[in-house]
């Protein structure tokens, strides 16, 4: 095929903490084919040009959430971003914005995991049910109320799209809030009030200034901005009504 002669330049943000003071760009020439993903481009570099390049990847089909990168300054899953959309111009790939870089394209995601763990991402049943009683009934409409928010693959593109997270790493942020909302909206769950403490906290939803880019870049149409902003309203209600309600909302 004549295409095997075509090449594309991929510029990679490199960083090796053992030798580099700061990240720097390095350009590679990679054979181009029109069905080649950015991830395949990076794999080509690793296999043929520089074995020391580090990046995360696994499923190749946009479901495991590993391979998020900045591609020409925008957060993308590199497995479903294609070089043909940039060819013949040079493509620049960098580690996801707003996260510390461990090495090359590998970010430190420990903070994200802490947030995920902090939101109580599991069913706290409204009514206990034994296995012998079978499944909880949940109509397609009830499923629909949270299904979109359960589609988050934790790829963190939304964090790379959120300047408020970049400016304040304590902000719970879009994906974790979407997941929190997913459990609040589940007809089987009864712990929305417990989760309110975090929603309404200084680390919570009010860090968001409705930039909305998180939802633009989400590869799974989760619309995390929506989850965050619905919870602003919920938190505001809780703030003003806590004195009226006998249960008093959260602390």
């Amino acid at each position: 095929m004549s295409e095997s002669q075509k090449t594309i330049e991929i510029e990679v943000l490199r960083y090796n903490p053992e030798t580099d003071q700061a990240p720097h760009l390095q350009v590679f020439q990679v054979p181009f084919a029109d069905d080649m993903s950015v991830l395949q481009g990076a794999q080509y570099i690793k296999d043929h040009l520089d074995g020391s390049l580090s990046f995360r990847w696994s499923c190749r089909m946009a479901i495991c959430g590993s391979c998020g990168m900045m591609v020409n300054g925008e957060p993308h899953l590199s497995c479903q971003t294609f070089l043909r959309d940039y060819y013949p111009a040079r493509v620049r790939i960098e580690a996801l914005s707003h996260f510390p870089i461990e090495r090359d394209l590998v970010i430190n995601m420990e903070g994200f995991i802490d947030k995920l763990e902090s939101i109580q991402p599991y069913i706290i049943p409204k009514e206990k049910r034994s296995l012998a009683q079978g499944e909880y009934l949940q109509t397609p409409e009830q499923l629909n109320a949270y299904e979109q928010f359960s589609s988050c693959i934790n790829c963190m593109l939304c964090y790379a799209a959120c300047p408020q997270f970049g400016l304040n790493a304590d902000f719970v942020g879009p994906a974790a809030m979407a997941l929190l909302h997913r459990y609040n909206m589940d007809s089987r769950d009864g712990a929305a009030e417990e989760r309110m403490e975090l929603v309404a906290a200084e680390e919570g939803v009010f860090n968001c200034t409705a930039v909305g880019y998180c939802s633009e870049v989400c590869p799974k149409q989760v619309d995390p901005a929506n989850a965050v902003n619905i919870n602003k309203t919920n938190a505001a209600k809780d703030y003003f009504l806590r004195f009226l309600s006998p249960k008093g909302g959260s602390k």
Partner: peptide
């Protein structure tokens, strides 16, 4: 959940 969370006064503003 993290303990010692401080409620934000942002709702007013």
């Amino acid at each position: 959940m993290k303990s010692g969370l401080k409620r934000s006064n942002a709702p007013i503003f």
